[in-house]
């Protein structure tokens, strides 16, 4: 699978969960289910707000510290956008099942101890948001996320959006950024060596992908094509069109 493949998503793929979504982009395929608000166990119960429980399950092998780390990051970011105060003493359970991740053909991977890549985060975030929308969980805003890698090729700096495993291996630093639909920075996680200047560049690149104004996307087909070449996919437009097509399909009888 090529890293530049356009994102694809399907909503309501699982019949028994309150909400579910399947999302694939840049070689990653993730299925998410959301149940909530449901009864919380006593140890998870919070007196004034809902507990957001995120479970990340790797495709192969048992989850370890890396998965727990991803869970904690996702949990704190998603609690920010879900209206948790509306559902005190309850639980919103998000299960993220990684189905497919791009493989590096040049290395044989260790499997029994699964170690999910840092770059899977945007896919997890995006799937979680889609599943939350599908479950009708009230949220302040939606979120879009992207991964950006900086590599040094012959002394020149090269910024790669949605890096492949091989890009990550050669990159100096990898960054994952998420923005809310109000253009606010929701999540910024970085790995590797980088300067403040580089981070600013990454920020601008990611913002261009996640927060492209809706007007720019509508200005004629040629304009959109130019944009696609320059800054990758327009995540916000993607989220919007996915939801629109789902709602249109659900309400076709009206």
């Amino acid at each position: 699978m090529t890293a530049t493949a356009a994102p694809e998503a399907a909503l309501g793929v699982l019949p028994r969960a309150d909400g579910s979504a399947k999302y694939s982009h840049a070689g990653y395929t993730v299925t998410a289910s959301v149940n909530g608000p449901i009864e919380a166990q006593r140890r998870d119960e919070l007196a004034s707000e809902a507990h957001v429980d995120v479970i990340v399950r790797p495709a192969a092998g048992v989850g370890g510290t890396r998965e727990r780390h991803l869970e904690v990051i996702l949990q704190s970011s998603l609690s920010q956008i879900i209206l948790v105060k509306n559902f005190p003493r309850s639980l919103i359970q998000i299960v993220l099942q990684v189905e497919d991740s791009p493989e590096n053909d040049y290395v044989n991977t260790k499997i029994v101890q699964a170690s999910l890549n840092f770059a899977v985060m945007p896919a997890l975030m995006q799937t979680a948001v889609l599943a939350l929308l599908s479950a009708g969980v009230p949220m302040k805003a939606t979120a879009t996320a992207t991964a950006v890698a900086i590599a040094r090729v012959d002394g020149a700096k090269k910024i790669t959006v949605d890096p492949s495993p091989r890009d990550i291996e050669t990159a100096q630093s990898v960054h994952v950024l998420a923005f809310t639909s109000h253009d606010e920075l929701l999540l910024a996680e970085s790995e590797g060596d980088f300067t403040i200047g580089e981070w600013d560049e990454v920020y601008e690149t990611a913002k261009g992908i996640c927060c492209r104004p809706a007007a720019a996307a509508k200005e004629g087909m040629a304009m959109v094509l130019d944009d696609d070449d320059a800054g990758g996919t327009d995540m916000r437009q993607f989220l919007r069109s996915t939801m629109e097509s789902k709602v249109a399909a659900d309400l076709h009888w009206k």
């Binding site: 699982l14 495709a59 497919d100």
Partner: peptide, 24 residues
């Protein structure tokens, strides 16, 4: 799936995904 060793079985509304992996 696209990779070797990924099978997705749907039986009515039951859905199971199996993934086989190997290491030394």
């Amino acid at each position: 799936g696209d990779q070797y060793g990924v099978a997705d079985v749907t039986l009515g509304r039951t859905r199971v995904l199996a993934k086989a992996t190997a290491e030394v």
